[in-house]
Amino acid sequence: MRRSNRTTPRRLLEDQLFGFGDGAASNALEVYIHRLRRKIESQGGVSIRTVRGIGYMLVAK
């Protein structure tokens, strides 16, 4: 939420979720993003946008 309307790099998210150098599955972040999208988008007002090749962005609808 602190970084809304700014792109958050994929690597930063992986480091925050899984720790530095921890070998998470290749699609683990996508699974978490998918689950989070379902929860917050059902409430309305906010969505997660994928910025291809960079990361993700939280935007107001």
Rank of each mutant, 00 (worst) to 15 (best):
R2F: 14
R3W: 04
R3I: 06
R3G: 00
N5M: 09
N5L: 01
N5E: 05
R6Y: 05
T7L: 01
P9H: 09
R10F: 00
R11Q: 05
L12M: 13
L12A: 13
E14Q: 03
L17R: 11
F18A: 08
F18V: 04
F18L: 09
D22V: 14
D22N: 08
D22C: 06
G23A: 15
A25Q: 12
S26T: 14
N27E: 15
N27A: 09
N27D: 10
A28F: 03
A28S: 13
A28I: 09
E30Y: 13
Y32I: 14
Y32C: 14
I33D: 04
H34Y: 14
R35Q: 09
L36K: 00
R37N: 06
R37Q: 08
E41N: 01
E41A: 11
G45Y: 15
G45A: 07
G45R: 04
S47T: 11
S47Y: 11
S47K: 09
I48Q: 00
T50C: 13
V51A: 08
V51M: 01
R52D: 08
G53W: 11
M57S: 05
L58Q: 10
L58E: 01
L58H: 05
L58Y: 11
L58D: 01
V59D: 10
A60F: 11
K61V: 11
K61M: 05
K61F: 08
